[in-house]
C-alpha cells in the first residue's frame, strides 16, 4: 500500500459518501444517472465476490464490503426511496453498448488459467465495465448542460480516485516491478474520460462559479 493508492481509495470512498449525502439532504436524485449507479453495482459485485474466498487484508475486505453495500444502497435510494425524483427521459445512454463489449473483451483478455476461469473473467469484466461506467452520467450532464455543485464534487472525487491510481502504478512498477496491464490500460482510459469534466471543474467550480457546459 502506498500513499497514492490509499488517497485514491479514500477519494473513492468520499465520492460515495458525497453522493449519499446529496441524495438524502436534497431528498432527490436529480442530475444523477441511475444507469451509471447500476453499472457500479454490477462492477463491485462481479469484482468483489472474491471476498468470499480471498483474503488480502482487513482493509481490503472492509472496503469491498463498503463498496458493495453502499452502491446497492444508492440504487435503493434512487430506484425506490426517491423514485419520483428520477427523470428517465434524460438518462438515455444505452447500457448494452457498454456491457456487451466489456463482456466480449473480458472473454478475450483476462488472466484466466486452468485453476481459475470464471473468477478471472468476472474480474476483467468488472475492470472493463468500470472504465466506461461513468459514461451515462457524463452523457446526462452533457444533455442537461449544467450540474449542481455537490454533484460536481462527487464526480471530482470519483475522477481523482482514478487519477491517483496512475502514480500508484508507476510507484509499484518502480518499487516492486508490479505491472497489471489490464488494470493499467483500462485505468488510463477511464481517467481520460474525465478530462473534459476536470477542465470545467478547475476553471469554474473551484472559482465558485456554477458548473455549466459551453453552449
Amino acid at each position: 500500500m502506498n500513499i497514492f493508492r490509499f488517497l485514491g481509495d479514500l477519494s473513492h470512498l468520499t465520492s460515495i459518501l458525497i453522493l449519499i449525502h446529496k441524495i438524502q439532504t436534497s431528498r432527490s436524485c436529480r442530475g444523477i444517472s441511475y444507469k451509471t449507479q447500476l453499472l457500479y453495482v454490477i462492477v463491485f459485485v462481479s469484482r468483489y465476490l472474491d471476498l468470499v474466498w480471498t483474503y488480502v487484508s482487513l482493509y481490503n475486505s472492509l472496503m469491498k464490503l463498503f463498496f458493495i453495500s453502499s452502491s446497492s444502497y444508492i440504487l435503493y435510494l434512487i430506484k425506490i426511496r426517491f423514485r419520483p425524483t428520477l427523470d428517465p427521459s434524460i438518462d438515455t445512454f444505452s447500457l448494452p453498448y457498454l456491457i456487451i463489449p466489456a463482456a466480449i473483451l473480458s472473454l478475450i483478455f483476462n488472466y484466466a488459467d486452468e485453476k481459475a476461469w470464471l473468477s478471472e473473467v468476472l474480474w476483467s469484466f468488472s475492470i472493463y465495465l468500470e472504465s466506461v461506467a461513468i459514461l451515462p452520467q457524463l452523457f446526462l450532464l452533457q444533455r442537461t448542460g449544467e450540474a449542481e455543485t455537490i454533484t460536481t464534487h462527487y464526480l471530482f472525487a470519483l475522477g481523482a480516485y482514478r487519477a491517483l491510481y496512475i502514480p500508484n502504478w508507476i510507484y509499484r512498477y518502480a518499487t516492486e516491478s508490479f505491472v497489471d496491464p489490464i488494470a493499467i490500460i483500462s485505468g488510463l482510459i477511464q481517467t481520460a474520460l474525465y478530462a473534459d469534466f476536470f477542465y470545467i471543474y478547475f476553471t469554474k467550480v473551484i472559482r465558485g462559479q456554477k458548473f455549466e457546459l459551453p453552449a
Partner: peptide, 10 residues
C-alpha cells in the same frame, strides 16, 4: 518473468 497476478488493489 511472469508470475501469478496478485489482486490486492480495489
Amino acid at each position: 518473468e511472469q508470475h501469478k497476478h496478485v489482486k490486492d488493489e480495489l
